[in-house]
Design a protein around this nucleic acid. Structure first.
Lengths: 337, 337
DNA sequence: AATGTTTGATTTAACGATTAACCATCGTGA
DNA sequence: TCACGATGGTTAATCGTTAAATCAAACATT
């Protein structure tokens, strides 16, 4: 491995000069600097990050703590964080907290032990992450708005709700996966707001809630809004098993725009997080904190993007033909099998 | 931050002694060692990984290069690798090659630049990873068996095929996503073997292949075997859109046992990778290579586990009631809607 | 001509942990 | 009593990089 010392002795100069030439910091004649850069690249010189970290106290590595990598949304966040980090010359060390709060603390300790400069954390459900003396940024949980970056879940729900409201739905079932999740509650709150005051909504949860769906439709519900795409897929199964077709008999929406949303039939109307923007924001906030700059303006929630597909349609009327403002260009699926 | 020097001067001993006491390497009286450990933990001492890395030349960090984190299987591998690494006191630095071969090389260079001790790589499709002077292990692509750890895709296909063969399927459609993927080809090869010589199979690919499914069923196919769960979901959509029910009219299988497999209805019969074992193996191989030990015996492919659910059933007969060896305890779904 | 100032490079000392080499001290066997 | 081997510890060098302090010319200023 080529080192500064190597280059220096090869060229008969001091290591300091080499360091200066390569970093452009001190005072080196352009002529010599050129010669040094040349030789360095010929030798394939790569500065030792360990040595640099030791000297400067900065490792150039960020820690990422995730509750559960099997949640299909997180990898997308991780991927975008990794891209954003690379663009800033930083590396990302992952740690999996496996949902467990204790393990989450342990993971944090591990990371700081490895000398990360800062930490990005996606905390498990409501668990507020511990306050540490390391710069941190929290994703997707509204704890402290000054170090949190999050999608506008509520606004997203509102968009979806408004869409269905416009279609004419007034009797809507909200399907959640986990009562304890603040994010899911936010999403539901937004949906209700978007639907407007004249709509009647009711929330159901989990496997039990899914089974109740056909009954609720029989009682007049015309739409099911799930707080995740996976849940929507489950709902779709329960509904079609009961002989109800989507969107003919009942409209269905998801959340997050996972790959499966387009693999279903009908393709799922859902709402997408701008994961790229989230990752960017998170890294901006974090790098500022690492630089010790006073906190910038609190970050506002990042808007979500409505993705209209084929699973939403105006409610079937007892009386027949329906006129609508044509959000879709498809043929009327009401009569479809 | 507490350092060795700090502890040493607090206790009036030399840093060497503190180092020895903490690592248990040199000769220190048990009495003094105890006192040192005590003080160290009181101060919350954490050795500086940078300093240690500089001195020993080992960073304790592994690099992980993945082609595309949005593929739902990879995160599970990543998660298990992260767990396995943690158990061995190692960290994992991620890098996303985004499918691009050029970026893959760049990611590798980045990682070695950061001083990783070894690299785990899941190469993009057929791209053979470049030979570098860093210890490496390759996952899921059969390049060189001596540094490759992979699930037994072919054996998995064989298991699935055998299952369907036993049920009586003789006319089977194989559905793939990408012709270029060796893994998918392996899977298909296995399926064909498992079904046995008397079965007739035909392979179709991608979106185009999915559209052809209903026609093929009309021509006598009784079963669709997809090379991934996501593909199976798509197939299910196309089939049910055409009025064909699963498993009544046609059986369906997936691959990988993703979360969506249980969210579908019927739940998908599929085959699961033992990601935990894969991760373990990969790390074992890699740590051996890092230690410079001569290569251990080549690793054999890791067996997959058949997951029987409700999407497979004996083929419908022109003549009626069917007797079967009851792989399922469900009621006959042939008559179901 | 004596005194600054700029320019280009060198010394030197650190960062924190590890480790080979060295040095006391004490007990033991010859 | 003397040399010897444990035992318990210290010194000092080192890993590769950085940065402050220093130094020696060359050049400009009065």
């Amino acid at each position: 491995m080529a080192s500064l010392k190597q280059i220096a002795s090869d060229l008969g100069v001091s290591t300091a000069t080499v360091s200066n030439a390569l970093s452009g910091k001190g005072r080196v004649s352009e002529e010599l600097a050129e010669k040094i850069r040349d030789h360095a690249s010929r030798l394939g010189y790569r500065p030792s990050s360990a040595a640099r970290a030791l000297k400067t106290g900065q490792s150039g590595i960020l820690g990422l703590v995730m509750p559960d990598l099997t949640n299909p949304l997180f990898p997308r966040i991780a991927q975008n964080l990794s891209i954003a980090a690379e663009a800033r010359g930083l590396g990302i060390l992952i740690a999996d907290s496996r949902g467990d709060a204790a393990r989450q603390d342990e993971a944090l300790a591990q990371l700081v032990g490895r000398g990360v400069d800062g930490i990005i954390i996606v905390p498990r459900l409501g668990t507020a992450p511990p306050q540490m003396d390391v710069p941190m940024v929290v994703i997707n949980t509204a704890s402290d708005p000054r170090n949190t970056v999050a999608a506008d879940h509520r606004g997203g729900g509102r968009q979806l709700g408004a869409h269905l409201g416009e279609l004419g739905h007034r009797n809507v079932v909200l399907l959640g996966g986990n009562r304890a999740s603040e994010v899911q509650q936010d999403r539901m709150r937004g949906m209700t707001e978007g639907l407007g005051p004249e709509a009647h909504t009711c929330a159901v949860w989990g496997e039990e809630g899914m089974s109740a769906l056909p009954g609720l439709v029989a009682e007049g519900a015309t739409c099911v809004m799930a707080t995740s795409d996976l849940l929507a897929l489950g709902a779709h199964s329960h509904l079609s098993r009961a002989g109800l077709s989507v969107p003919g008999d009942v409209s269905l929406t998801g959340f997050d725009d996972l790959p499966l949303a387009t693999a279903m039939h009908p393709e799922l109307t859902t709402i997408a997080q701008d994961v790229e923007a989230i990752a960017d924001q998170a890294l901006d906030v974090l790098t500022l904190r690492i630089a010790g700059r006073p906190d910038p303006a609190p970050v506002s929630a990042i808007p979500m993007r409505l993705v209209l597909r084929q699973s939403t349609w105006p409610p079937r009327r007892r009386d027949l033909s329906v006129t609508l403002s044509s959000h879709h260009s498809e043929t009327d699926p009401t009569g479809a099998k």
